[in-house]
Structures are given as C-alpha cells and as structure tokens.
Design a protein around this nucleic acid. Sequence first.
DNA 1: TTGAAAGCGCTAACAT
DNA 2: ATGTTAGCGCTTTCAA
Lengths: 335, 335
Amino acid sequence: MPVTAKTLALKLGLSQSTVSRILNGDPRQRISDETRARVLEAARLLDYRPNAVARSLRHGRTNIIGLYTRTTYDVRNHFLAEILGGMQHACARHGQDLLLQTARRDKSAEVIFNSLRDGRIDGLIVHNSQEDPLVQRLAHSALVRPETAIPVVAIADPDPVLPVVTCEDSLGMELLVHELLRRGYTRFAFLEPQFKLSSVESRKLAWKNTLLAAGVLENALLNIEIDGESAESALRDDRLLTGERCAVSCWNDQSAYSLLSTCFRHAISVPGDLAITGFDGLLDPRLTDRRLVTVDCRWADAASTAVDLLMQLISGEAVPEETRMPVFLTLGDTI
Amino acid sequence: MPVTAKTLALKLGLSQSTVSRILNGDPRQRISDETRARVLEAARLLDYRPNAVARSLRHGRTNIIGLYTRTTYDVRNHFLAEILGGMQHACARHGQDLLLQTARRDKSAEVIFNSLRDGRIDGLIVHNSQEDPLVQRLAHSALVRPETAIPVVAIADPDPVLPVVTCEDSLGMELLVHELLRRGYTRFAFLEPQFKLSSVESRKLAWKNTLLAAGVLENALLNIEIDGESAESALRDDRLLTGERCAVSCWNDQSAYSLLSTCFRHAISVPGDLAITGFDGLLDPRLTDRRLVTVDCRWADAASTAVDLLMQLISGEAVPEETRMPVFLTLGDTI
DNA sequence: TTGAAAGCGCTAACAT
DNA sequence: ATGTTAGCGCTTTCAA
C-alpha cells in the first residue's frame, strides 16, 4: 500500500487536509510549530510522496508537454536528437517533463489526435511537415474549435495556421553561396530530395537567386534530384564531373555526408574534383574525419524557443505566427 | 469548458455512470441499443474524450514508462538516440507512452528519486553507470523497501541489484581481435577512458586475454588512457607510430572516430600507418566517408528488450538479473 | 437496463 | 490553528 496524506493523518490523529496543507500548501501559513514538526517527521519516516496524478486531476495541469514526430527517434535522425536535446533544456528551465508521443503507423491521425487531448499533456510540440495528416488535423482543430484546441507549437516547416519556429533558410543559403563565389567557383549544383519540404524550397530558391544575382549564367546551374538523403545516384549524373570544378550544395547535411562517402569510394577527391556543402549543422564534427562546410541552424535553440513559446500559449498569452532563428556559416575542408 | 461524461449525462438525461459504462466499459453489457446509440452520437457530436488523468487516478496505472539518463539527449550522444528509438518501438508494442525524466544538475539524487515515484510512471528504464548517485539510490530502495520500490530495468552496465540488459562485451572484443590476428597484425593498443565503466573493463580484459592466448607477447600490447571520447592526445604517444604497424582498439565508436579524424589532419593513413577499430556500432555508416571496423551491439534491441522486461516487472512477474544481447562484427575499411 | 454512491489522492474554500 | 466539505473525472460495486 502506498503512503498517502490520509495514512499520515490517521497515524497522527490529524485531518487529511491539515497534513496536505503542511506538506504542500503555503509555507507561511498559521500552523503550530509542533504539528508541523510532527507531520514532517512522519512524512519522512513513512517516505511519503504526494501523488502527482491526483494533483494533476485537481489542478487541470500535468506539467508535462508532449513531443510528436512522425518518425521515431533513432540514430539516423540527428535532427530529432537535436530537437530533443533543446527541448530537454527548456523543459528543465520551465519545470516541465517531456512525453514522447509514440506515433504508430497503424493508427489513424484521428486516433493519435484524440490521444493527444486526453488531458495528459498541457501542450504539444510537433515536428511538422505539411504532408503529415496529424498536423493538418491539429491545424483544423485550432481553426474550428480554438477554445478546446490543445496549445501547439510547430517546429521546422512554416505552417499557415500553427505558430512555428524555423530557421533563416534563405539567409543561410546566401551565406553559403557567397562563400562559394568568393572562392571562385563557376559551376553549381543543388541536390534536392524527391519530396517537397517548404524549407528546402526556400533554400533552393535562395541558392538560385543569389547565383543569378551574382551574374552566374543559368546554364552553369544544375538541379539533381536524389532519393531522400542518399546521394549515391547523384554521381551518375555525368554533368557533375566534366568541365570546370562543380560546387554541389546538398539540401541537408546527411545527404552531403552521403555524397562525401560515395566520393571516397570512387576515389573522387573532395574538394579537389568536387566541392560539397551541406545544410543544418547537425553532425558532431568529432565523428567525421572531414569537416563539412555547412550552415549551422542550431536546431536545439529552435526547439528550446519553441518550448518557451508553448509555455506562453499555455498560460494564455499570444505568440508570433512565425519565429525565425539565426543561422551561422560553418567553414570546413570540403570546398 | 472541457466535455466530460457528466456533460453528456446532463444533456441526455442519463446518469454519468451509464454514459461512462457505454463509452468505456465492457462492450457486451446489457444496455439498450437506443441509449447506446444516443450516447455514442452525443459523444461524437460534442467531441468527448475521456480524461486519462482521472482514469489513471482510478486505476493506479498511467501506462507511461519513464526513461532516466544522467546526460541530456543531444546529437553528441548516439547511444541515447539509439536507446530512445528502441524504447519507442517497444512502447508502441505495449501501448505505453514514454516520459523523459529531465535530470537537472542542480537537483540532488534524492529529489530526482522522489520525483520518479510520484505516481506518474508505472516503471523506469535507467541508462546506468555505477557512479550515478540516482542509480545507487534506486538500488538501495529496491533492496530496503522492495514493496514500495518502483519497477526498474537498467541498461548498459551490469549492476549488482537492478535487473540489467547489456551486450556481450567480451565476445564482441574477441571477434574483433581474431579478425586483427587473421589479418596479421602484431602490435596492439587499447584506448580507454579515464573513468571506470564496467563494460569497458570487460572489453579491455577480453582484448588482453584473447591476444595473450593467441601467443602475442605482453610487450606488444599498449594501454593508452584518453580524455573520455577525445582521442587526439593518443597520437602524442610515440610508441604508436614506431616499428610495425599498430592496431588500435578504441573503447567505443566515438573515440575511434575522433582518432580517425585526428589521423586525417596529421596526414596519417588509415589503415596504411595505423589500424583502428571501435565498439558499439552506433553511427550511421552513411554519415562518414570511412567505414569503421567495429562491433555492432544493437543497442536499440537492448532497449526494446529492457522495456519488455519492465512490462513483466510491472505486471508482477520475475525477470532475470542480467540479459546479454548478441553482438555482431562489422567490417569496414579502417583495418 | 439504468441509477446511486463510494472512492482514487489531492487542494482549497469555508467553517470552527 | 485545524477540521469539514466539496469536487477534479473517472470506474465499479451495489441497488433498484
């Protein structure tokens, strides 16, 4: 049997509410020093712990915030790891715990959506993409029934309805391109995934516009579609290794590393034969022997900010529709 | 105002308990088809969701399991990412959610320990190391007050008290050493961290014993202590690059990558001048241009198993003191 | 087939 | 300074 406030009260011949008041209530309340001492002593002795579930029921607050992501957290997803880390710090600051919503393939968006509003979490961070049906469902709910809707902050991709935290994609790409131009590159390629992601669209657009604005001709630009984050196929594009040396900008870091690895296996020298840049700044530089030139988006900071905003939402304050985090150019040895 | 069973009952002129019974109780109960239909319809209309907190209070079960780790989840810790992934899968299987316990430096073990037994989680997975005061506290509680103690399964390092899931460290190292011997190496080094970790001790012991058993002389063996996972300092040991080519076995993957990177910067060829092996098998091979020779411990599987065991504990069954997961040799291009 | 009532453990307003 | 009471939303006997 667990020890409750009632147990203590019975043992001490006090009322349960007195016990509760001493243990949790306003510490500067009128209570005799003697009873206070007795209660505290008994609590210590019996190893009493107030039940958080009962408290939550009473308060209508659990002090738990949820994180929903469509993919599971595994080592292949540094992005999620980074986000999780940032959220953890912010949660610690706000005294919140973090509940990972386990997205199961076999559950419909509706089922997951419902499980999100069963009272166990006070608010939710979603790692969103426009395609995710759950994100759509959340947005719908925020529009139609805002008074019942659970507080949500999205991270990564802009959304027309949900408040979101993203990074300065365009600015980051401009930094990258200017560095490439400064180093004298004259031919450029952009590696993009076959699926649509609005932040990647921004990167691509900025890439093209910056180059054109600098006087680079359209026929010096190359668009190559790859399978997600695997860049092996890109090398089969024979325009990549002919003529002048080409600077390949990959849509994210993982695809850049994939390309780097493929180059090593085919004895293509980087940056001798090919220059490579990434985007995100996610990988620990100690893990690779090459230091990738990339844009550091500090996703952990973004996640931390998202939690700050969520706490504001929970306490009824308004938050900006879109928050853009600063980005930083990371130099290395791949260009 | 949130919609509760009471709201529905009032609206329909039924009792709250009837509503509850229809919505959650035994589906094959004697209830008129008409009322059932009315209740379900109203629930749908008003978008009713049973409150999970109230349910938990009632049942004494939250269907949430906790994960405690001393370090926070960031990109530098692939180990945690892997464990998280494995737990997620297992949790989904068992219909449990996952609560990350945010360990704050400024909180004592006692405070954290208490926050773990406030009723919000049914059980706990700890990523343990003998040094962690919280792990000691949990073990103490399991010994002294087993009836109140919260169900715990540890992962990674053997523990005298808590049931634990680890991998076959010794066997893994034997596989590695045999491969090195097969390839004709005659000089060997082991890179170890300055702190004690019993699984690393096993690896080191197995490394030494296997080599000695194969007839390698003691003076062909080198022990080098490094600063955690940073292997830069190791290259300053001048015994490493003199004489015959040395095979360096690092205590884990991250230190191996660190060494690899240092070699690249110093223009030391791997495996030309130096052979390198790791341990853990954590890194996505697509992320590096080199493929490290290592031992794959499948930590995600271990985490998944730990959750399975925890569920057994929670339902009152006994579990083995120690579960060892199989390991697999991963070949690459660094030896 | 349905309703009334108790109780999970806690907090807080109100009474004494 | 302390006790009484109500109630958070739910499940589950027991009664009708």
